[in-house]
Amino acid sequence: MLLPTVTNLALFTITISMALCLWRLIVGPSFPDRVAASDTISTNIVALLIVLSIKFTTQDYFDAVLVIAILGFLSSVALAKFLIGGSVFDRD
């Protein structure tokens, strides 16, 4: 009974943490705040999917975990590049 209780507590706490990040994403005074908040949300989704894979004892979630980790990193880098130069790819 220990592990189901701990995984349910983990799902609850990670959801609370994502709600806090969503608050920063909505309120955040500057645009880099929102980019950092969305990056943290993708990290929390990774943690949520790993806890789900422990809860159901499968390995099916890890492809989704890798894809979400890569997409979160690439989206934050692309948004940062867009903020600096106004374009994601340099033309020169």
Partner: peptide, 13 residues
């Protein structure tokens, strides 16, 4: 790397 890019964007803007 992502945190560095975000901080650099915030600094330069």
């Amino acid at each position: 790397v992502g945190a560095h890019m975000i901080a650099r964007a915030a600094y330069l803007t």
